[in-house]
Amino acid sequence: MSGSGEDIVQFSNVGLRYGTGKEVLSDVSFTLYPGSFYFLTGASGAGKTSLLKLLYLAQRPSRGMISMFGTDIITLPRDRLPGLRRRLGVVFQDFRLIPHLSAFDNIALPLRVAGVTEQDLQKPVADMLEWVGLAGRSDARPATLSGGEQQRVAIARAVIGRPDMLVADEPTGNVDPEMALKLLRLFEALNRLGTTVVVATHDLHLLKKVPDSLIMRLDKGRLSDPTGALRYPPRRQAALS
């Protein structure tokens, strides 16, 4: 259990297996500090998506301890999970926009789920559309948007609730390097507001673009931590302070 409340996520000897197969994650231990920017890399099949699923509470581990926001999520009753999920922003690898909703309504969804009134959400959603450069496409359905535009709607939806932690799975997977860089700048801007960011990526070039980022490397389900910085991170002040 994290007693300090300073760390946002703590994994301790976490293992994950699907069904009766072999473990796809083994002995994963790390601590994420608020306001930090993490990249998660590793070969295909190394377990990046599996680790992110644990992070965005779509999966329970087979063993080990996980605490998030100071709450032990292994023993947490199921009905408390929605409250935690609302503190997260997730960019899925395949966007998962709702096809029959407009860009505006897709972005507004987390606010509506949280019970924000229509009146209160108009401006934030409009601002967010503008921020991701889609002010003119407010009424567009996802199918009529380009891949990069859909990705930006997905990112806007992930950050509209100003999450404590943003989890993004290959968010630059399908776009050209220029767009990838632009999206990365979005994450950095959010990070400067105090959100902890975890980005899974194949693209090693991206890693160099964020100078202060920490790197988590998965190798066949094990987290390599040669410097120990993930298990025992150097004191790092939150970007907000």
């Binding site: 949280a114 950050v159 609730g161 100003r162 959010l190």
Partner: peptide
């Protein structure tokens, strides 16, 4: 980024 709604929970 714009002043994002703080709507959690």
């Amino acid at each position: 980024p714009p002043v994002i709604a703080r709507a959690i929970a």
